[in-house]
């Protein structure tokens, strides 16, 4: 049964990013429009169709996943880090909430922001292109699981981070490269064999293709493998984050 305390904390996390919608929801949409206009309209006509879809349609699931991942990560990482650095995390730590409940609260906040951002990009895609949603239920599940996973990554980084730069560092040197090399803008078939093989070690490649399958019914990977990779990431990062937080690592003295 969900306790009132846990429900309240989750509500706090949701209210936090919803009240800052100018910073948490709008920028992702604007960036998506720019990607669609710049890449889709200007380059798309030169690239042509990929697996039966226009280039503009092809990149939309990847953009949705990119938005979901970066927003989920940023939300939980910055929410926890702000609470730590501004020292109001103590207000939560002295309550009867367990470390697991607090961890899950941060992850749910991140997952919700990631999911909403992903859905908004898909809605934008529906408005700007002719895509139809092939597997709606799978879209919801895939976006939720991946958002959850990166909400948990954000929690982990929020635990470890000592400065805001630490949070941005992971985005610049890890998330962004992996997202771009994960096949947002191209099919793996378009790569030379060496890069094709390297891409197989990128978990985001499976996540992006998982959503591409759910939206367009095309993918470079098996949808089952994509889903399993997403679930595995969610489980591993959630356990790691929750265990560290519950032990008070870099949280309690």
């Amino acid at each position: 049964m969900i306790s009132t305390g846990f429900y309240t904390f989750v509500t706090r996390e949701l209210k936090r990013f919803l009240s800052l919608y100018n910073q948490t929801l709008v920028p992702g949409l604007l960036t998506t429009v720019l990607y669609i206009v710049v890449f889709g309209k200007s380059l798309g006509s030169r690239i042509g169709d990929i697996k039966g879809h226009s280039y503009m349609e092809f990149i939309i699931p990847g953009l949705a996943m990119m938005n979901a991942i970066t927003n989920a990560y940023s939300n939980s990482a910055s929410s926890l880090f702000q609470a730590k650095i501004m020292q109001f995390l103590d207000d939560i730590l002295i309550t009867p909430l367990s470390g697991l409940e607090i961890s899950l609260g941060y992850i749910i906040g991140g997952a919700a922001r990631g999911f909403i951002n992903g859905i908004l990009v898909l809605v934008m895609g529906l408005l700007l292109t002719d895509i139809s949603l092939s597997h709606p239920f799978l879209i919801v599940v895939e976006l939720l699981v991946v958002s959850w996973a990166f909400g948990a990554v954000g929690l982990l980084v929020g635990i470890f981070a000592k400065t805001f730069d630490n949070i941005q560092l992971l985005v610049n040197f890890f998330l962004t490269p992996l997202v771009f090399l994960g096949g947002i803008f191209y099919s793996i078939d378009m790569l030379p064999p060496l890069w094709r093989n390297i891409s197989l070690f990128n978990p985001l490649y499976y996540m992006i293709n998982g959503l591409r399958y759910a939206v367009l019914d095309i993918a470079d990977t098996s949808p089952v493998v994509s889903f399993l990779v997403s679930v595995a990431a969610a489980v591993i990062f959630t356990l790691a984050g929750a265990i560290l937080f519950s032990r008070g690592y870099r949280i309690k003295e």
Binding site: S3, T4, G5, Y7, T8, F9, T11, R12, K15, R16, S19, L20, Q82, A83, M86, Q87, F88, D90, D91, I92, T95, P96, L97
Partner: peptide, 21 residues
Amino acid sequence: NFDWFFSLWDLMILQAGYYGV
């Protein structure tokens, strides 16, 4: 040190909620 995102009223209600009130 306080949660800077919320008003006094919200903070009171949130704090009570954390304790299951």
